[in-house]
Design a protein around this nucleic acid. Sequence first.
RNA 1: GCGCUCGUAGCUCAGUUGGAUAGAGCAGCGGAUUUCUAAUCCGCGGGUCGCAGGUUCAAGUCCUGCCGAGCGUGCCA
Length: 579
Amino acid sequence: MLHYLIERRLQETVTAVCPSADTSQILVRPCVNSQFGDYQSNALMGLAKQKKMNPRRLAESVKERLDVGDYCEAVEIAGAGFLNFRLKNSAVVEVLKGACRGEHLFLQKSGKPRTIVIDFSSPNVAKPMHVGHIRSTILGDCLARTFRFMGHRVITDNHLGDWGTQFGKLLVGWRRHLDPAALAADPIGEMERLYRLVNEACDSEAEVLESARQELVKLQKGDPDNLAIWQKMIALSREQFDAIYGRLGVQFDFCLGESYYNPRLKSVVDQLVEAGMARESEGAMVVFFEDISELKAHPAIILKSDGAANYTTTDLATLLYRVETWRPDEIIYVTDARQQLHFKQVFTIFRRWQPQARPRLAHVWFGTILGEDGKPFKTRSGAIIKLADLLDEAEERAYQVVTAKNPELDEERRREIARIVGIGAIKYADLLPNRQSDYVFSWDKMLALNGNTAPYLLYAYTRIRSIFRRLSESSEAVYQLAEAADRPWSLTVVEEVVLAKHLLNLGLVLEAVSEEYRPNYLCNYLYELAGHFARFYETCPVLKAGGDERFQRLALCDLTSQVLQMGLGILGIETTDQM
RNA sequence: GCGCUCGUAGCUCAGUUGGAUAGAGCAGCGGAUUUCUAAUCCGCGGGUCGCAGGUUCAAGUCCUGCCGAGCGUGCCA
């Protein structure tokens, strides 16, 4: 929190010294090495270069006029022109006391709330959700929580795959081979079976293929029977999707599938043709990008030679709808890396088609989940892993661990802990790596109790809760967080200071997460926080301390647990008081 | 062929405007416990950041070339 104030003062001072400087580049960051101080600014070296000034001399003149004495010890110039800031303990204590009084939790909400649409998850009707959907779902949900927490208006929209040629085959299967009992027991399993059955038959029997084509045409023309079956398939699929979203704690404001945009597709094609952006080529309507080297070799088809639109057209119609309906400042698509070319095409077409449209368009892409063999994650027999099975296994494995560690808890309690730990471990393992890299899925690593894992963070939280449980059981249960603000603080032990200062950086980290769409920054911040807490916990007795020191340490524990719980909450991970 | 992304410790991965001595965890070795939950903490060893050039006061980070991997590349999404 103090970093904002230092940064603002520094920017003001730089403006005074060098009025033409771009202060948005004048940033203050945590020191890479604590021996230099708490925060540093490297920006003066860049500015000096830009303005052809001597960097040391610029740093000197800025330092002379810079007044941060209420927050910092003397500012130091180091090396080629680094500015180093070391916080005053009194300033750190004041911020902590503000948090004790409930004035803030180490961050400021955005002064300029934006409307942000996030498109994520997007499973296909009549197919099970599988590992391929978890990154989009977990990452998208986490970004939605982050932006909401920062004070923005967020609209989440699940763009279901509820339309397409597969429904011809599904309709044939439904009409000829449906097993109602199987459908009742496991709707998606049965629909998947029907699809496979017909799909295979299509390869060998021309009649089946022809029937599928006819059923699809009937559906597209609005045949009531086929429409009813199609709607039934969607409803059944959504029930199963919702069960999984329920387990993951993921919610959507809207669930407007591809079919929702069917009535709008023709208009999109017509407009692009009228605007001269699309033309006929090899029987299809195509947009070319002659002037963009990256896309020159990759024209986009917006109308197939059979007269049907494809996903580029649907995405354009969807984009226009969102812009017109919600007037967002930003639209974020969370999909895997393989769709990069597609979104470059869609965004490029949209910019040309709707040059006045203002939203920032972001494709937030992520890498593949690999098995231990380095190939895309599958079962041993090579089958796709269903998300429901994956969650079951996570909970079961976590249950085994909890039972081994804490057999005296009753079973219901152990199941509840296992649910939180298991689901949390899956989510954390997914959010921890840089989203752009592929990562290797490992049960042992994500459920490990040491290292950068959900169980480690959750354990840190339970240790704090345990202190407060002891406190409430004791006769000295006189602690109130707000009261800690009225007592003198000393912060004499280095572990206390390090923990306290780390708490202050939460806002900085959340800003980085939202600017770059990278929750792994928050994961690492929380891991470091848990580590600082563990060292504090080892060296600083809390309940055994007395007087003001006891109050101060209880408050540090309290605030740390709040930040842990809130941070994990932003990652979509629940906490538990016991493990 | 072209395009995108990547190549960091034995393994799995971090690495915020280019910034100070490149960091974690695991694995290995050695310590700490009559515990506020040791599901923890501390210490040690381990690196030519794929290779070669270039830009810069400063490059894991930016540019060029090469080697290697994954993905994409006109009628799936």
